[in-house]
Design a binder for these strands. Structure first.
Lengths: 146, 146
DNA sequence: CATGCCACCTCAAGTAACTTGAGGTTCAAG
DNA sequence: CTTGAACCTCAAGTTACTTGAGGTGGCATG
């Protein structure tokens, strides 16, 4: 088994990470992935470390960090130029954002569930449905903005 | 008090909804808000209903639903052009999407919490921090893709 | 009555984060 | 040795906004 996760191509990295190939190249271009080592001078080659870094980037993006901020975070993890407090603030900030999102989603989950039920009833009666998704979601959405 | 929430300008709608003025106009342009009634033939005028609709749109966007899909959802609520089955399918579809999102967010919440804790410890010791966001997020992020 | 000023208007261009496409190499398999 | 998948670069397209330029209408104050 040469395939010990220490020298693979971009396609493999894509499969492993779930990030599409052009997107990986894009991340390199904008500097949140380091310029990949080039095998034979042409093809990008990656290892475990690269995979971890990409996973970090992916995660951060999913959390809603903009690329600029990710660059900052990466910069932060370089012990030379970081205050721990900055890192802490950034991530706990992000945490409360995530918590908020979960709440919103859960209330929507509930109303959506109700709606599906209600809808199913109407449907089984063969009548024009009163599937007021708009209305049902509004209660929670208006609160969410506060 | 004329200000009974039934005839206000775009700026007020913006304040009430938390959606920026040009963004509201944009939503109208792309058809997920109805063309606003024009007061004096020029200025857009809104009421409670509009606010609710906008709140729905805002919520959906924050949840990551693309505008196309929101248009679909809104379309659904118009009883004329929906079969109940379609409505049911779409919304239960939406429901499983929401459930998935909640799961992802929860795992992210957990790792972020851990990270904040870990970071806080290091910081309080006044040492160059090992705030390995990079590392700490990787565990879950690699799993998250599964 | 003129003169700000503010909130509104439209239309055009800019931005972020990708995605898609054209056109061209490389490499492993048959 | 050729064929096809996977790689490459560079440019243009897409989505969802944001920002900016240039202009209008209303009312408040000097």
């Amino acid at each position: 088994m040469e395939n010990d996760m220490n020298d693979f191509a971009i396609g493999e990295l894509s499969r492993l990470s779930g990030v599409k190939v052009p997107n990986i190249r894009y991340y390199e271009e904008v500097g949140i992935l380091p310029p990949a080592f080039r095998r034979n001078g042409r093809h990008r080659s990656y290892n475990k470390e690269d995979l971890q870094r990409l996973a970090f980037v992916k995660n951060s993006r999913e959390l809603g960090f903009p690329i600029k901020q990710i660059r900052k975070l990466i910069h932060l993890t370089d012990p030379d130029n970081l205050t721990c407090d900055e890192a802490l603030e950034l991530s706990s900030n992000q945490l409360s954002l995530v918590k908020e999102k979960i709440k919103t989603l859960q209330s929507i989950e509930k109303t959506l569930e109700d709606h599906v039920d209600q809808c199913r009833n109407n449907c089984s009666e063969g009548r024009a449905p009163q599937c007021k998704i708009l209305v049902s979601q509004n209660g929670s959405s208006l609160r969410a903005g506060d």
